[in-house]
């Protein structure tokens, strides 16, 4: 069972993780993008943590919705609406709930993933955050259907997201600003897949 206070801990952890990795993500982005991903993610999740502290949410859905609205307003670029959509779609699955079980966890992440997929229209292999999202959500579902609990599901998802992130290195970008580089985007790890892997690692560390 995942509680509201664990969800709040996850968001605080994301603030810490993106702040810690601000320079790293921005460096990845400067190679194939516009050199602002780390700055934007750190700004967005700091604002999200502050928003939750200033007006404590009543339930998990309300918490995720507040995170979504804050990200949409503060992150900017392409990542703002993409991560904002993840949290918005995820919030709809657990409105009014103070706890969620394995089934709820699966719905939260699969709906969030479906939202980002629809918004960004990227496929696996396009060298985007989808390359981390898709295997992570698949692994999460598989872990549950083979009888795993919350910890096993998040463990599997985080590992799959990291593998997906690493797999972006040799790819040629087909979406976003990096796509204009064509072949020159090869050899660089995708910053969006990297921030997604961090999101799942933080979930494993706080929600299990």
């Amino acid at each position: 069972m995942i509680t509201l206070s664990q969800i709040l801990a996850w968001i605080s952890q994301l603030d810490a993780v993106y702040t810690e990795n601000k320079a790293y993500l921005t460096e990845l982005d400067s190679a194939i993008g516009d050199a602002d991903h780390g700055i934007n993610m750190a700004r967005g999740f700091s604002a999200a943590r502050k928003a939750l502290e200033e007006s404590p949410p009543a339930d998990i859905g309300a918490a995720l919705k507040a995170v979504s609205m804050t990200l949409i307003k503060t992150v900017g670029g392409a990542s703002g609406p993409l991560y904002g959509t993840v949290f918005l779609k995820a919030s709809v699955t657990c409105m009014g709930q103070e706890t969620i079980d394995e089934e709820g966890l699966e719905r939260l992440f699969s709906e969030g993933f479906r939202g980002v997929q629809q918004r960004g229209k990227a496929q696996v292999g396009d060298k985007t955050m989808i390359d981390a999202w898709d295997p992570a959500v698949t692994a999460l579902k598989e872990a549950r259907s083979s009888g795993g609990g919350v910890a096993a599901m998040l463990q599997a998802a985080a590992a799959a997201a990291e593998a997906g992130r690493d797999a972006t290195v040799p790819l040629v970008a087909r979406k976003g600003r990096a796509s204009y580089l064509g072949e020159r985007s090869k050899g660089h790890q995708d910053p969006g897949a990297t921030s997604t892997a961090l999101l799942f690692a933080a979930a494993r560390d706080t929600l299990s």
């Binding site: 949409i72 900017g76 670029g77 392409a78 703002g80 609406p81 993409l82 904002g84 959509t85 918004r119 960004g120 979406k175 976003g176 600003r177």
Partner: peptide, 11 residues
Amino acid sequence: NYTGDVLNFET
């Protein structure tokens, strides 16, 4: 047509 503009306007 820039990825950021399109995604923000869609949202």
